[in-house]
Design a binder for these strands. Sequence first.
DNA 1: CATGAATGAGTTTTCATTCAT
DNA 2: TATGAATGAAAACTCATTCAT
Lengths: 205, 205, 205, 205
Amino acid sequence: MSDAPSPPAPAPAPRKKRAEGTTREAILKAALELFSERGFHGTPVPLLAEKAGVATGSIYRHFESKEALANALYQHWRNAQLNAWFGGFPVHLSERAQFHELWRRMAAFYKANPLVFVWLEQHNHAAYLDEESLACTKRVLRPTTAFVKLAREKHLLKPLPAKLLVAIADGIFMGMVRFATAQHFELDEEVLDAAEQCCWEAMRK
Amino acid sequence: MSDAPSPPAPAPAPRKKRAEGTTREAILKAALELFSERGFHGTPVPLLAEKAGVATGSIYRHFESKEALANALYQHWRNAQLNAWFGGFPVHLSERAQFHELWRRMAAFYKANPLVFVWLEQHNHAAYLDEESLACTKRVLRPTTAFVKLAREKHLLKPLPAKLLVAIADGIFMGMVRFATAQHFELDEEVLDAAEQCCWEAMRK
Amino acid sequence: MSDAPSPPAPAPAPRKKRAEGTTREAILKAALELFSERGFHGTPVPLLAEKAGVATGSIYRHFESKEALANALYQHWRNAQLNAWFGGFPVHLSERAQFHELWRRMAAFYKANPLVFVWLEQHNHAAYLDEESLACTKRVLRPTTAFVKLAREKHLLKPLPAKLLVAIADGIFMGMVRFATAQHFELDEEVLDAAEQCCWEAMRK
Amino acid sequence: MSDAPSPPAPAPAPRKKRAEGTTREAILKAALELFSERGFHGTPVPLLAEKAGVATGSIYRHFESKEALANALYQHWRNAQLNAWFGGFPVHLSERAQFHELWRRMAAFYKANPLVFVWLEQHNHAAYLDEESLACTKRVLRPTTAFVKLAREKHLLKPLPAKLLVAIADGIFMGMVRFATAQHFELDEEVLDAAEQCCWEAMRK
DNA sequence: CATGAATGAGTTTTCATTCAT
DNA sequence: TATGAATGAAAACTCATTCAT
């Protein structure tokens, strides 16, 4: 009815200026590190902000919600992956050579962004991923499946469901990555080539 | 503030009667379902209690904490897995036959407890796992690695690090499972055998 | 990828036990006082909890959200008002006597719950009120309007829209209440009767 | 993190040009609309800025704080009201005629600024109003009270406290306004005259 | 004088855990 | 041993305010 005490004193704030888009990038970078280390639900936003070197509130200036941030991150990296794996792919090569090229690209992408691979694979079906994120996942799977189908038609690969072959290849790559991860993220040429050979022999007719 | 007459009977506390040990199991069952679906941090204890059909407080009668519950669950299933995979294993068979046997057992265990596989694989290095849980993981890995080493020594498998071979085999199995899950069909004999063959060819010299 | 520090230590908590329904009542009481004093948006939930003598979290055990609390409060008091104004109303009396009776009841209700009247009137169209709350408002208006229509038909009141007459009467009552509020909530018999007479003369033919 | 090339042109800061004083007025206009619709605490400054078509920071170029803005707005309109109600008031007329004139002026002011009336009436004792704002309120009340006292002395009005009579008249006016608002029609002559007559009969001896 | 990203305290809400019954 | 209301610290999110440009 009458006078209620006004809030204590709305606090000032030191300022920082960053180059265009830098804040967003910093947040995405921190999110990748923390999400892959501790999981989505295991990562509090303030921790994320601290790691990104920004204030908690700034997160929400760039992303609608924590969930939206996770989706943006997911889509960003799925797209980057799609590009790294298939951008300007040399389709004129023989199937075996194409496979080699793809394997190399996958490895290169992993080496450049070791956390990304782990995160993408582990959070495939997380409840917080939206339609668009799931669509991105499919977009990456499509060319792989197409390639496998073609090679299978040419009787180079086993007459198994293309998706099964893809799943197996993916599994082998993931196994190799896990092995590398256990060895402190070192993925040397030798292992890479060996795993590629394993994979090819797993699939080939 | 007072227009509803207070209820005449003070409602005696309902008490649920359960067979011995059943409550604990109901909790573990609910935990498995929820943890594998939503993750550890994504699963509130009250929800867990509801799914288990017990009161929230009852959880703490059976487990020290949520973390302790997760570890108990993890250890329970790692041990079950160890037993299912290697209990009374026919070590007298040929390596190829042993591999076949193992593959079959892995599949059988997966079919019997599909969620377990998913959960165990995904939460390998989670922060909430204690020493004992990690020890359980190693205990499962040991016989597999030993088998691979032996077969490799006999020049049946490629001369690669045993851990890499194991990781690859594991990856293929996981790929197969994912494939089955994605296609919404039971892991049938055909796919199972095909994947086994792929796996063997991946590893063999 | 590896061990993230588990949360600091999830804090214990002293307990309190209250009679059935007491907590809810305490919350509603505190909410009435604070909402009418500082408005809905001007009242932080922790303050509300403190005033109610409960923990912040307890609010959410009894109400879905702050908004739901406001609606529950609103509906509670609108219903109480309906009952106080019209419960067992002596419809056999003359119109003038009925008006007197109603005026007395309105005053009695105000005297018993001074804050309620103010709050109900001021927050009539607040954005946070739901369907049911608005329906409650209408339910209170209906008998008043019906009474006015009847008296107007008997040529006791001016031939004006019933809703206008009701609005005017309501306005006078509110004016009286504001006057009383300014005088430290004292609403003495004299003022009450005088205002009643004013109101009747405002409406009568 | 880096697959999009940074934009070629660094985008020069857009600057809005407005006629002198227009920005301040745009802010006040937006504030009136939002404060009367959602209340002071329910209106975020960024929303206000958006509605006013200015940047958030610009608000603080024209007003010390949100609270200061509310007070400026309040005072602005209380003064406007004072002027509209009593500026050059024809004090030579008979009391009844003066009352008619006042009623007309009140209605005219309401019609010209419907939101103002609502806001002024509802936020009379809000905690964020400062001394000066409250003084403005009193300044509007003074001539009304004086007029009522005079008329009462001349035995034209009931021998009641002047403040009660004023409160009643105010209540009737508000009731009329609410009625018009609820019926979604303009305050027409007919209703206006009828309410005036009601009000006079409520107060007159 | 204008801008709007950045800030961090404050707000709403959740949830692991306790304990009187 | 089971219950579930109560707790309060921490989570997600908001917003008044500042300041580099």
